[in-house]
C-alpha cells in the first residue's frame, strides 16, 4: 500500500507540519511502510478479542471534587511567547482561519 502525495500533504496539514518536497517523498515512503506493516497485523483473526480501551488494567481512576491552589500567575505566564498584563498575547486568531 503506497500513500499518494496528496494524502501525505493532508496529514502534514492536519499536524501543522511544513514539509519540503524531499521530506514529502521521504514521509511517503516511511508512512507507506508503516501501513504495510499494519496490513500484516490485519491478517490476524481478532474476532474473539474485544478492543483495548487502555493498555493498563486500570478502571475508574477518579478523584473527589476538591479544590487545591493553582499555579501563581507568574508561573502560568512563564512560557508565554508574549504577554500583555496577565494574558498570553498571541497572533490574531479568527475562527474561520482554523479547521475546528
Amino acid at each position: 500500500m503506497t500513500l499518494s502525495r496528496e494524502e501525505v500533504e493532508h496529514v502534514a496539514q492536519l499536524a501543522r507540519l511544513g514539509l519540503t518536497e524531499d521530506e514529502k517523498e521521504r514521509m511517503r515512503d516511511q508512512l507507506s511502510s508503516i501501513l504495510e506493516n499494519m496490513e500484516i497485523l490485519k491478517e490476524l483473526d481478532t474476532s474473539a478479542i474485544s478492543p483495548t480501551a487502555h493498555v493498563l488494567p486500570l478502571r475508574n481512576v477518579v478523584r473527589p471534587d476538591e479544590v487545591q491552589p493553582s499555579l501563581p500567575v507568574e508561573g502560568v505566564l512563564q512560557n508565554a511567547p508574549r504577554r500583555e498584563e496577565d494574558y498570553f498575547r498571541i497572533l490574531p486568531v479568527f475562527e474561520e482561519d482554523y479547521e475546528r
Binding site: E66, V67, Q68, S70, L71, V76, L77, N79, D86, Y87
Partner: peptide, 28 residues
C-alpha cells in the same frame, strides 16, 4: 457546578478570578 475543574484541582468557579489565576500544568 463542580468545585474543581474536570481533570485537575483548580477552582472551576472562575467568574470573579483575575485572568490566568486558576490555571495549572494540566490546563496548560
Amino acid at each position: 457546578l463542580t468545585k474543581s475543574k474536570m481533570f485537575c484541582r483548580c477552582n472551576a468557579q472562575y467568574a470573579d478570578a483575575p485572568p490566568n489565576s486558576v490555571v495549572c500544568p494540566v490546563d496548560l
